[in-house]
């Protein structure tokens, strides 16, 4: 327990360590973690949502969309970062590349499932009303798919927080992982304190995005009985 008390002191001091002036504050590192992560998530959304939505709309490529999720999960963040480092040298670009590689699959998979799973009767009805393909996508499929797409983004965001901290192990500095990777400077109390902050940050991101997701979910869907019998694509944690 003593260690946890010391860790909370470290947090209370915002990451200051006696005898080591000039270390970055925890607030700064937390914001950097979010910034690096947000860039990765943003790029991933731009790439993955259109692909997933389009595949779902044309009801094709289920094999690719779903197995992509599995392959993404099989990629250990550290290995991706390490291999990126081997080929390109470590820097923000390689870290963002790794984040995108890891965040794109769950977003594609979820976007695909979201649009593909929209009730065909609704789509047929919309066709019957004379809507064009584009209109069907915009006015029927997308609104219904938004919650599940967002669930994919949420999964990806939690991934990204985790991977951003792991990037410190590969030598990329600029996240809370720096503290965990540098026990020499921070002692174990600092490492533990940073671990608490990383956990809190991930939970906060998850919590905040869950709220947003709820706000985006059409009321009708909230009330509807959840579909049974379908194995949901479980969220995955990157390593």
């Amino acid at each position: 327990m003593h260690e946890f008390i010391e860790a909370f002191k470290f947090i209370a001091h915002n990451g200051a360590v006696a005898g080591r002036p000039g270390l970055p504050t925890l607030t700064h590192l937390a914001l950097e973690t979010l910034r690096v992560g947000a860039i990765g998530v943003a790029i991933s959304i731009v790439i993955a949502v259109p692909i997933g939505v389009w595949l779902g709309h044309v009801h094709r490529g289920s094999f690719v969309a779903i197995n992509l999720g599995n392959i993404g999960r099989a990629l250990p963040s550290l290995a991706v970062l390490a291999i990126g480092d081997a080929f390109l040298g470590l820097g923000l670009t390689v870290v963002e590349l790794a984040l995108v590689i890891l965040a794109v699959p769950p977003i594609i998979t979820n976007s695909y499932l979201a649009v593909d799973g929209v009730d065909r009767d609704l789509v047929d009805a919309a066709k019957g009303m004379g809507m064009s393909e584009g209109e069907i996508l915009r006015r029927v499929e997308l609104p219904l798919a938004v919650p599940l797409i967002f669930a994919g983004i949420r999964t990806a965001a939690v991934f990204v927080v985790s991977t951003t901290t792991i990037a410190s192990l590969a030598g990329f500095s600029g996240s809370l992982g720096d503290v965990i990777a540098n026990e020499t400077s921070y002692h174990f109390s600092g490492v533990l304190g940073a671990a608490i902050c990383v956990a809190a940050l991930a939970l906060a991101v998850e919590g905040a995005l869950t709220l947003v997701q709820r706000a985006l979910t059409p009321r009708g869907l909230l009330l509807a009985e959840p579909r049974r019998g379908r194995v949901r694509v479980a969220d995955a944690m990157p390593a």
């Binding site: 005898g19 080591r20 410190s168 192990l169 590969a170 030598g171 965990i180 990777a181 540098n182 026990e183 020499t184 400077s185 174990f188 490492v191």
Partner: peptide
């Protein structure tokens, strides 16, 4: 304090942990 010899690589990336 010289942190290095405590674990040279730990500065770069890892963890003394």
């Amino acid at each position: 304090m010289t942190g290095r010899r405590m674990g040279r690589r730990s500065n770069v990336m890892v963890s003394a942990t």
